[in-house]
Structures are given as C-alpha cells and as structure tokens.
C-alpha cells in the first residue's frame, strides 16, 4: 500500500497531463499543475530551510571544524528571513512588495547577494584559464577543432576580432573573423546543438515513460515502510 498508492498517483497524474496535451479542453491542467508545483515548492523550501538550520546547529553544538562560520550562516539566514517575512522597513507596510527598492531586504539583495554571487562566478574566470590550457592543447584532431572553434567564437564577439581581419579584401570576406563566427554559430554549432537536443529529448521521453510505468521507482524509496 505504501508503495502502490504513490506509484498509482505518479501514473495517473503523469498520464493525465500527457492526455491533456492532446485534449484542448484540458489544456488548463498543465498550467494549474505548474501552480501546484509552486505551492508544493514552498513547503519543500521549508524542509530545506529546516535542514540548513539543523545541520548548522549540529555543527555548532558539537563544536565541529569551522563551527564559528555556521553561526554566521544562521545569523545571515534568520536576519534576511525576519526582514523579508515581516517586511521590516517596507514603505508599503505588510501589503507592500517584499523586494521594493529602499527596503532593507532590497539593500541586502543589492549589496550582499548580487556582489557575492557575481564575484563567485567571476572567480571561475581564473580557474577557467587553467582549464582552457588543458582543453586547448591541440593533442588530436578533435581538440584542434575545439580550439579553433572556441578561438573564433571568442574573437568574433570582440572588436579585436574585427580589427584582426579587417585587411582581408571584400571578395574573401567570408574569412573575416566575425563572418567565420557567424558561420560557425549558424551551421556546425547549430547541427551539434540539434543532435544534442534531439538526444536529450529521446532520453527524457524514455526516462519519463520508465517513471510513469513504474519501471523506475527510486522516488518512492526502497523499504516501502
């Protein structure tokens, strides 16, 4: 029962949505399901938040390595949670938009969330340099193609790329970097993208069928208890 009911639910809900795609009167079902997702996602967020608090509290109480930083995480989490949920300093009061400009919540977003997030990603610019070295060593034909394609793509998107081949006569303008960039993007790259996309589609369809038909039941769990 503990495994049969969830399987039946998966089967019925999944195939109802599939059938709805072919039945215009039921079209609305897919949209409403998306709203259901959003609502359930909030409860999943509560679970996630609870897990974050639990993990960090365990770290603090057991004085595990770097436990001091767990305090910082919890303080940051509860600080934003309080100013956000209670709309502290919001000119619109409790009915105002949570991320309205001028609110402490907006300031945290602007001066903490955005700078740290952007810097985290920009750090990859340094690490990608060493990755580039490894990837771009023309060891074989495939690596050489990767190197040439990436170089043309990068050069073609900058004014330097345009400047580099500006001397090429008009009759041979296909060899100018911006034109090569356009050609690569619109033909070989598009072909590769399509092959990958069709491959992904086949994979998603077969995996979805496995889930809906109960061949794949990992989400229900092993024990059945």
């Amino acid at each position: 029962m503990n495994r049969t009911l969830p399987f039946l639910l998966t089967f019925i809900v999944g195939f109802t949505i599939v059938i709805a795609t072919f039945s215009p009167p039921l079209d609305r079902l897919a949209v409403d399901t998306a709203v259901f997702f959003s609502i359930i996602a909030v409860f999943a967020m509560i679970l996630g938040g609870g897990n974050l608090v639990k993990i960090n509290l365990v770290k603090i109480t057991r004085r595990q390595r770097d436990w001091q930083f767990a305090i910082v995480t919890l303080v940051g989490f509860f600080f934003v949670l309080i100013i956000g949920l209670f709309k502290v300093g919001n000119p619109g009061g409790v009915t105002g938009q949570v991320d309205a400009p001028g609110t402490p919540f907006f300031d945290v977003y602007t001066y903490v969330f955005v700078p740290v997030g952007a810097t985290m990603y920009s750090l990859l610019a340094f690490f990608i340099a060493s990755a580039s070295y490894r990837a771009f060593r023309a060891k074989n034909r495939e690596a050489t193609i990767l190197l040439i394609a990436a170089s043309i793509i990068m050069l073609g998107a900058t004014p330097f790329g345009t400047m580099l081949t500006a001397w090429i006569p008009d009759s041979l303008d296909i060899f100018e970097v911006p034109n090569l960039h356009f050609f690569l993007m619109s033909s070989p790259n598009l072909a590769g993208q399509r092959a990958i996309m069709i491959g992904i589609a086949l994979g998603v369809i077969s995996y979805s069928l496995r889930v809906l038909l109960g061949v794949e039941r990992s989400h229900i769990g092993k024990d059945g208890g």
């Binding site: 996602a41 967020m45 969330f113």
Partner: peptide
C-alpha cells in the same frame, strides 16, 4: 557563510 545564509533567506522570502 554570509552568502549561504543570506541567499537561503532571500530565496525563501521570494518563494
């Protein structure tokens, strides 16, 4: 650590 805490709180409120 600040980023982890703040981003979790931020997304929770927005959600």
């Amino acid at each position: 650590s600040i980023f982890v805490g703040v981003s979790a709180g931020y997304w929770f409120c927005v959600f």
